[in-house]
Design a protein around this nucleic acid. Structure first.
Length: 471
RNA sequence: GGCGGGGUAGCCAAGUGGUAAGGCCGAGGUCUGCAAAACCUCUAUUCGCGGGUUCGAUUCCCGCCCCCGCCUCCA
């Protein structure tokens, strides 16, 4: 069985066949940089990262683009409130976003195009112009340009919505009466006072681009008319991704996206995350509480992307415990392998081979991470048992470790490397002497001193082992 | 109202027409100067509820209940 994904468009599991293997063109909707991204946003980005990493583990070359929305109602409002120019205002959140990606071990995309980049503004104008010429767009009395939905009967197919049955929810602005049809969305928004000095010239007057056209313009400019994979949160399905399809296909005449993958929402302690509920968290909030990026990464990645994820602090604690167990296991393997470096003749470890096959096959199946982690922990238990019984050869240990490293290229769960302070090393030496003299009292005192410095020392048959203490 | 996703042990969660992976937590044990780690054992006769199909359903069908999301610029 090859790789297969659930395609939102067909609502079915489909075999994954990119246009030009091994190349994969992937577009992922990025953040609107008007504040710090929250953990719900990062659930989507972590999912996309796992997707990319697994495709790469399977030999694909992924070219991924993630856009940055740095002009829209919220960024403009924010910059005015902060009395900063728009670019200065958004720049701080762009930087913070990149820091957060790093903390969560999310691989950088091949490109992070920003909506305000003159090159892409030009591209957007060009696309809108094409749509105007072909009759897919029109200028309304308010001078804005709108997409003419009546010309694109496929609109609604991705979301499987019947447009005639849409229920008005009050989110439709009443002042858009100039539009031909209530669903027509803005491609170009004519300047108004609230925009301040944020405006670009266009054939239709000064204004700024609509949100949807951004993605269509940047995706097709950087990846071509057709994408293999387009990701985002389920909330983007309608209307954003519908609009992208409409704009792109009416411009290029080609099918825009082959596989649509959407991840479900994150909830917090069983409720929707909202500032008003006091359960709204950014990555920084969690770091300040003593959690690490990889712990959050584990918590976010360990539930299948199509299921709603209930984020809890119990879940983070479970992530911490699971990661420590993985760390300890990998260290035991490394210790055994290193102790006998040079004795690694071809092991053909059945355990390692089965581990790799089972794990990767699980991820092939629409990123079934739960099953994949199940195989990981089964392998851990089995090899730990063999280690306890001195039945694991150094060659097996070496091979298992290599297998783990390959698998971990998709997970990125390795421990943060921390240099052991000289002070701690000195205490360990001192303790070694005390232990040789069976001075248990002194040994325990030094253990406490080491703990006070943030490190944990464990006594094994191969001597003391140090690890960073978790907060 | 429309569309979609869910309800599996204390929590998270995989899964199949043939009798319930895995993780976390908890209890007991082995090991250990102690501690930690690791390992072993135990923890759902049962998979929201009621019917049906079947030799047999958690898995298929019908009905019902509950939760969550989207319904025009929130990942």
């Amino acid at each position: 069985m090859g790789i297969q994904f659930f395609n939102t468009y067909s609502r079915e599991i489909e075999p994954f066949e990119p246009m030009n293997p091994p190349r994969v063109k992937m577009y992922t909707c990025g953040p609107t940089v008007y504040n710090h991204a929250h953990i719900g946003n990062f659930r989507a980005y972590v999912f996309e990262d796992l997707l990319q990493r697994h495709l790469e583990a399977r030999g694909f070359e992924v070219e991924r683009v993630m856009n940055l929305t740095d002009v829209d109602d919220k960024t403009i409002r924010g910059s005015r409130a902060a009395q900063q120019p728009l670019d200065a205002f958004t720049q701080q959140y762009k930087s913070a976003f990149f820091d957060d990606l790093k903390t969560l071990r999310i691989k950088p995309a091949s490109a992070f195009p920003a909506a305000t980049d003159p090159r892409f503004i030009a591209r957007m104008i060009e696309m809108i112009d094409t749509l105007m010429q072909r009759g897919f767009a029109y200028q309304a009395d308010d001078k804005s340009i709108y997409f003419r939905l009546s010309k694109f009967p496929d609109y609604g197919k991705l979301a499987h919505l019947n447009l005639d049955e849409l229920r008005p929810t009050g989110r439709i602005r009443n002042d858009e009466y100039e539009k031909e049809s209530i669903g027509d969305f803005a491609l170009w928004k004519a300047w108004d006072e609230a925009d301040g000095d944020v405006a670009w010239d266009s054939p239709w007057g000064r204004g700024r681009p609509g949100w949807h056209i951004e993605c269509s313009a940047m995706a097709t400019a950087l990846l071509g008319p057709q994408l293999d994979i387009h990701c985002g949160g389920v909330d983007n399905i309608f209307p954003h991704h519908e609009a992208e399809i409409a704009q792109s296909e009416c411009c290029t005449g080609e099918k825009f996206v082959r596989y649509w993958l959407h991840c479900a929402h994150l909830m917090v302690e069983g409720q929707k995350m909202a500032k008003s509920l006091g359960n709204f968290f950014t990555l920084r909030d969690l770091l300040n509480k003593g959690w690490t990026g990889r712990e959050l990464r584990y918590a976010l990645i360990s539930v299948n992307y199509r299921l709603p994820l209930n984020f809890t602090f119990d879940g983070l604690a479970a992530a911490r415990s699971a990661l420590q167990r993985i760390d300890e296991w990998a260290r035991r393997l490394a210790d055994l392998a290193n102790l006998h470096a040079g004795e690694w003749s071809a092991a053909n470890s059945e355990l390692a081979i089965k581990f790799a096959n089972d794990f990767l096959a699980a991820l092939d199946d629409d990123l079934n991470i739960s099953a994949a982690l199940g195989h990981l922990f089964e392998s851990i238990r089995e090899s730990n048992r063999l280690l306890d019984q001195n039945q694991l050869t150094p060659a097996d240990a070496h091979e298992l470790l290599e297998t783990w490293q390959r698998i971990n290229s998709a997970l990125a769960f390795e421990p943060d490397v921390a240099a052991i302070p000289a002070e701690v090393l000195a205490l360990v030496e001192e303790r070694k002497a005390a232990r040789a003299a069976k001075d248990w009292k002194k040994s325990d005192e030094i253990r406490d001193q080491i703990a006070a410095l943030g490190w944990e020392v464990k006594d094994t048959k191969d001597g003391q082992k140090l690890s960073r203490k978790q907060s």
